[in-house]
């Protein structure tokens, strides 16, 4: 069993990173090498031209900043709104809680593409077009069902005795949530935050239609705007480079967030 561990980890790494690695290799190939048959694995004459082109053709640094803002704010809004709702569903024996939970789930069923036109009308009436905050709010709304369900199911797994003890110590409901439940639920919060953050980071349709000013655009829209001179050309090399650029900040964020999973574990061990 112990000896199998490195093999299993290697398999996981290969599975997860393999296709991404292929993108990295493709991004380093100059135009002439892209269509070679059979394909070269290691670029014969590696170059960073594709990366340069990506930043030259589009203001990608700007797009990265916009995406970061939208994703971070929508993640904060989502968690701030979902945590109390989830706690209420999980703990306060409210009348109709089960029904409310199912109703919340129902909102997760509608793909953004179908919601687009009505959302567009609503956003225009609210003056939220060409506003990154507007997009962050829509992302938060789209993420809310998942976040509520996710946190509620983890809160339920949390032993109620601890909360009862805190209540006896004079904490209010909100106090219990903030000081007892949330710290111990760090793994659930971290996992939910990562998933919600990445959803917002990658969302395309809403960002495309709501943000038409170039200086407000997000990364996925920016990638879709990479183009050759004519309509038909597909700049594979640049797209691969964009994949790599887009992913690195998320990997960094995940590396930071995933500590939350470990920390939550030790916190739970101490208090539990």
């Amino acid at each position: 069993m112990r000896r199998l561990l490195p093999v299993a980890v290697a398999a996981l790494a290969l599975f997860s990173a393999g296709p991404f690695l292929w993108s990295v290799l493709t991004s380093l190939k100059p135009a002439g090498e892209l269509f070679r048959v059979p394909p070269t694995w290691i670029p014969r004459s590696p170059s960073l031209d594709n990366y340069r082109d990506v930043f030259e053709q589009r203001p990608f640094a700007r797009y990265l900043l916009n995406s970061l803002l939208v994703a971070a704010v929508s993640t904060l809004i989502t968690l701030a709104a979902a945590a109390p709702a989830a706690y209420a569903l999980a703990r306060l024996r409210l009348r109709g809680a089960a029904l409310a939970e199912k109703a919340i789930l129902a909102f997760a069923l509608f793909p953004p593409a179908v919601l687009l036109v009505p959302l567009f009308v609503a956003a225009r009436e609210a003056g939220a077009l060409n506003s990154r905050l507007g997009v962050a709010l829509v992302h938060a709304a789209l993420n809310l069902p998942f976040a509520v369900w996710s946190l509620a199911s983890f809160f339920r797994a949390f032993p109620a005795e601890l909360e009862d003890a805190a209540r006896v110590d004079g904490f209010s409901r909100a106090g219990v949530l903030l000081r007892v439940v949330l710290p111990v639920s760090a793994p659930a919060l971290a996992a939910t935050a990562i998933l919600v953050f990445i959803f917002s980071w990658n969302e395309f349709v809403i960002s495309l239609t709501f943000l038409t000013r170039d200086e407000l655009r997000t990364v996925p829209v920016g990638v879709a705007m990479l183009s050759g001179v004519t309509v038909y050309e597909i700049p594979w090399g640049q797209i691969s480079a964009a994949v790599v650029i887009t992913t690195l900040p998320v990997v960094a964020a995940v590396l930071a967030f995933q500590r939350g999973i470990v920390r939550g574990l030790s916190a739970g061990a101490v208090k539990g």
Binding site: W201, N202, P220, W236
Partner: peptide, 28 residues
């Protein structure tokens, strides 16, 4: 390893789908 395991989820679907088209191409 955890960061790597999450990597695929972190890629924009529409963009990575282009890469998959490339990966599955019959000639290159």
């Amino acid at each position: 390893a955890r960061a790597m395991a999450i990597l695929p989820w972190a890629l924009p679907t529409a963009v990575m789908a282009m890469s998959w088209r490339w990966i599955f191409s019959d000639s290159w």
